[in-house]
Design a binder for these strands. Sequence first.
DNA 1: TTGAAAGCGGTACCAT
DNA 2: ATGGTACCGCTTTCAA
Lengths: 344, 344
Amino acid sequence: MKPKAPTMADVAAAAGVSTMTVSRALKPDTSVSEKTRTKIQEAADALGYVLDSSAANLSSRKTGFVAVTIPSINNSNFADTLRGIVDTLRGTDLQVLLGYTDYSKDEEERLIEQFLRRRPEAIVVTGGAHTERCRRLIGNSGVPVVETWDLPEMPLGDVVGFSNAAAGRLMVEHFIEQGYGKIGFIGGDTSRDTRGLDRRRGFVAALEANGLAADRLVATGPPPITMREGALSMRRMLDRWPDTEAVMCVSDQAAFGAMTEAQRAGLKVPQDIAVAGFGADALSEHAIPAITTVDVSCEEIGVRTATVLLRALGLAEGTLAPESKVTPRLIARDSTTNAARRSS
Amino acid sequence: MKPKAPTMADVAAAAGVSTMTVSRALKPDTSVSEKTRTKIQEAADALGYVLDSSAANLSSRKTGFVAVTIPSINNSNFADTLRGIVDTLRGTDLQVLLGYTDYSKDEEERLIEQFLRRRPEAIVVTGGAHTERCRRLIGNSGVPVVETWDLPEMPLGDVVGFSNAAAGRLMVEHFIEQGYGKIGFIGGDTSRDTRGLDRRRGFVAALEANGLAADRLVATGPPPITMREGALSMRRMLDRWPDTEAVMCVSDQAAFGAMTEAQRAGLKVPQDIAVAGFGADALSEHAIPAITTVDVSCEEIGVRTATVLLRALGLAEGTLAPESKVTPRLIARDSTTNAARRSS
DNA sequence: TTGAAAGCGGTACCAT
DNA sequence: ATGGTACCGCTTTCAA
């Protein structure tokens, strides 16, 4: 039935050389004469030989794995970061081992534990909040770590992230600048999405610093926070505080759901109510009106993360670690701007 | 510096037992007395021992990997399928090894080749189009395969998919039913996105079968086809065929981009032009107007795929293979319906 | 440039 | 319920 896959020994026998020579011939940059290399290549092809990494890994103590955990697969922001990582790693012999935590620290711990058995050469996690055991596991492993999308107070290792609180603050400042006074927030209520919570914290703090009320907070429930949650939350916001003038949402998806819900209720955006998001998703750019958002360079985070790792692993040079802090940047669009309001 | 990770032998020594007993104690369902198991567990914890899968894999000839390739990370449809797979596999000791092909058969071949070295226990690919070498590699490996999102003429193994042509046809029938005559298509021009191409083929064939002109085809260029491409394509469509009455787009993302572009140009949807998509993304539901689309149960595809695999691997019972064919289902919404047109 | 031998860290298999 | 032993398929190391 399954006639047992050929091994290096089979190739060696067929080519009339030792397994060591086969091993060398199959990698680049090793001293093997052109003639024997060709002979070995042909023998390997004829047998349909495929190298067994499991054995190679065990012997060489190198797996070529980079373990990466992200909260959710269906989130274009994290997907962008992941793409940055994968694309930067392409060309090296490093491969991503991906897991998603569903925003749960316990699930993250479970994943990390599973991943550590695979002996990854590096670990990338999203955010700085982990279970105590998870921190210990990573610490004991001695594997280089990068925490992304956050600026942890107690970093495990390298960090490539941004201040989520600053993102919230940025939006408040924008709202105030545009003359809004009754300002609300949608999302970020549970301890699961700690980054969303941080954005809300920064948002609330900035309102208070400006002497504004910070009570219009609608909890969306546990993540993922999709358009549906955004829509439901907007309905609750309008029910409870009908005179709300501006709302920031924890994500662009939520903002779109919230905005369309307001529009369906007959409100004009931004004339009757302003709506803003977070993440600079393409959606916010194409929506009508275009949605004001905060750009945190998701893909760039991934690229830098991979670069940091390559340096940590000695696979790339670099005198200094790249700047690890990404600066959130507000993108003002029609959904919150006075110009759009006046032109109505 | 890095004092070499403890091995099973270290744990065995510390607990005063043999490595075999340690090996058994660390897995469930093996005959080890409660007392020694506790003792071993404590020794392992004290040492910070973490099992080395590489060694276990080599010895047991089981890696616990399922190799999965999808065209793109940033595509919520594929992400849904992936989620279906991962969630179904959770609880088993199978782990997904993910790669994205960027819609390229050559990249797929490269990935599959890389993955095969890891000795996956199963392979999942998107679509039925592969390079000849890729087909051979998979065939030689003897690893169970599932092709998804398509109904290949020459299947490599199991299939969990749907007819992309049928999806295109479905939309044409809907358009005709709603009284549209000048109908166009956006997307699916390159050989890279073979499934998008199939949808267009089915679309064109259905138009012709109904005696309608099938020349309003706008090529978006190579995938990924995002909102931006949808918008640009709509502009081209309107420039070239200003009297177009209805447009199907290759994806909901493209449809949203196309629709908003039309709206920005001052057109009303569906009064002036109807727009439809594909994939039943949340976006199509929340957009204003809501966008008519085709639901192909992306997540369900993933769930079934994983179920098929579990059976193939003997990890789940099941008398028969589950129905492998998913039926595309049209979801009619305001963006294309007469009711919405009349009510204007 | 090539080869021989000794593991890498587990598990299968057979005893006890 | 527990242990001994022979590998799994490759790379490291040292020698030729």
